[in-house]
Design a protein around this nucleic acid. Structure first.
Length: 266
DNA sequence: TCCTATGTTGTATG
DNA sequence: ACATACAACATAGG
């Protein structure tokens, strides 16, 4: 499920372990989650470290295990983080468990599309520092967005919103939510939006990010029925603004949902 | 049995 | 070299 707000929600699930040492490690080192990393090194190095801090950036999370271990986690499509008892028995899909005195920190991912990046160093790892800036930071401007929309001009706007290099943390439901609010059909060519549409897209992008972080990132309470979110997967779902029937179709390889009354195909 | 799933990446094509 | 499209990854659930 994880897009940026869910990712940050899951990151905080490990907060009970902050300040405490890692006493034991369980991992399924043969799984593709660990591609690019050395799971044996992880298992060895993390012992005795202390969970110091954590951050999220787009769909990535980073955990600092002091003094010098860094654990990057991507949840893929079905990953999640949770806290278990200190003697938690790893389930079939619990691929990494960090045991502490009072609890265990669990990373579960049935489909294995997620990823674990382990590294050592004084500073946060290079891959982390190279991640694109948050859509809410002043480092991303309207002009950056316009340039990107035009560079990817022949792709459907839906596919462009999913490109993490410019829209970090946006996933399938957020992209549909943004386009629905902005009144733009997901199949419109990215380079053919009017200036007014570009502006509305940027405005709604930032709004959906803020709304998601507020509603999902903190409480996991469901979004209100005024969002497309609650209607998009239901057969016979209706647009909360116009009441017309919602349409679902694959665009750019992902199922997309839109309101034909609000979002004209052109 | 077949289809779907809130993600990314390797590969083929233009 | 660059942009674009899509199969592949692995598993569960309807």
């Amino acid at each position: 499920m994880p897009e940026l707000a869910e990712v940050d929600y899951y990151r905080k699930q490990w907060n009970p372990g902050l300040g405490q040492s890692i006493l034991r490690v369980h991992l399924n080192g043969g799984k593709r989650l660990f591609r690019g990393s050395d799971p044996a090194l992880l298992a060895r190095q993390v012992l005795g470290t202390r969970l110091k801090d954590s951050w999220s950036s787009g769909k990535w999370m980073l955990f600092h295990l002091s003094p010098s271990s860094w654990l990057g986690i991507h949840l893929g499509m079905t990953g999640s983080l949770s806290v278990g008892t200190p003697d938690h028995l790893p389930g079939k899909h619990d691929h990494l468990v960090l045991y502490q005195k009072k609890q265990s920190l669990i990373f579960t991912d049935p489909r294995l599309f997620g990823r674990v990046n382990f590294s050592l160093g004084k500073e946060s790892p290079a891959w982390w520092q190279a991640l694109p800036p948050s859509l809410l930071s002043t480092k991303v401007t309207f002009s950056d967005i316009v340039i990107f929309l035009e560079k990817r001009g022949r792709s459907p706007i839906k596919a462009v919103l999913l490109m993490q290099e410019r829209f970090p943390g946006i996933g399938n439901w957020m992209a549909d939510e943004i386009l629905w609010r902005a009144g733009i059909h997901p199949r419109r060519q990215s380079g053919k939006l009017s200036e007014a549409e570009q502006k509305e897209l940027w405005k709604q992008t930032r709004k959906v990010v803020r709304d998601a972080l507020r509603v999902i990132g903190t409480t996991w309470s469901g979004p209100p029925d005024s969002w497309l979110f609650n209607h998009r997967w239901k057969d016979g779902g209706r647009c909360p603004l116009t009441g017309c029937g919602l349409v679902r179709e694959s665009i750019g390889g992902r199922t997309s949902c839109w309101s034909p009354k609000r979002q004209a195909a052109n």
